[in-house]
Amino acid sequence: FSITQFVRNLGLEHLMDIFEREQITLRVLVEMGHKELKEIGINAYGHREKLIKGVERLI
């Protein structure tokens, strides 16, 4: 299971460039909250919320 699959499953594949540029893996994403996601350029609250909720389902 990769970050690419995870992001695609959430319908947020347009954010993949950010994850690749910042070298974010699923392991790193698990540790990130709204503040960190915003810092790397994910400005939409809804997108950040989707990512965080998606990660919570993985754990």
Results as ranks from 00 to 15, higher is better:
24 I>Y: 03
27 R>N: 12
21 R>S: 08
47 H>I: 15
24 I>D: 03
23 Q>V: 07
2 S>Q: 10
25 T>R: 04
17 D>F: 13
13 E>S: 11
34 H>P: 03
30 V>H: 08
55 V>A: 12
7 V>R: 02
8 R>A: 14
43 N>Y: 13
35 K>M: 07
58 L>I: 08
15 L>S: 00
10 L>M: 08
48 R>L: 10
1 F>A: 10
4 T>I: 12
49 E>R: 10
52 I>M: 09
31 E>L: 12
23 Q>W: 07
8 R>S: 13
24 I>Q: 06
59 I>C: 15
14 H>K: 09
47 H>P: 10
17 D>Q: 13
6 F>C: 04
33 G>T: 07
7 V>T: 07
8 R>H: 14
37 L>K: 00
29 L>H: 09
21 R>C: 05
59 I>Y: 09
23 Q>K: 15
49 E>T: 08
52 I>Y: 02
13 E>H: 10
15 L>K: 00
51 L>T: 00
58 L>N: 04
59 I>R: 12
40 I>L: 11
6 F>W: 06
13 E>V: 09
32 M>P: 01
1 F>S: 11
21 R>V: 05
10 L>T: 02
19 F>G: 00
58 L>Y: 12
20 E>W: 07
36 E>F: 06
7 V>G: 00
29 L>K: 01
12 L>F: 04
34 H>S: 03
41 G>E: 02
7 V>A: 06
32 M>F: 08
23 Q>C: 10
34 H>T: 02
33 G>Q: 05
38 K>R: 10
2 S>N: 13
1 F>I: 15
17 D>P: 15
30 V>G: 09
45 Y>W: 15
51 L>S: 00
52 I>L: 12
25 T>Y: 04
8 R>W: 09
24 I>S: 01
46 G>T: 13
7 V>F: 07
52 I>D: 00
10 L>D: 00
39 E>I: 07
36 E>N: 03
27 R>I: 11
55 V>H: 03
19 F>R: 00
58 L>D: 03
38 K>F: 09
10 L>Y: 03
53 K>L: 10
21 R>H: 07
38 K>Q: 14
30 V>S: 14
30 V>T: 12
7 V>Q: 00
55 V>E: 00
26 L>A: 03
39 E>P: 01
4 T>E: 15
11 G>T: 03
51 L>A: 01
25 T>A: 04
41 G>Y: 05
1 F>L: 13
54 G>M: 06
51 L>H: 01
5 Q>L: 10
32 M>K: 02
53 K>T: 08
28 V>E: 12
4 T>W: 10
1 F>T: 12
21 R>D: 06
50 K>D: 05
22 E>H: 15
35 K>S: 09
21 R>W: 06
15 L>W: 03
6 F>G: 01
54 G>W: 05
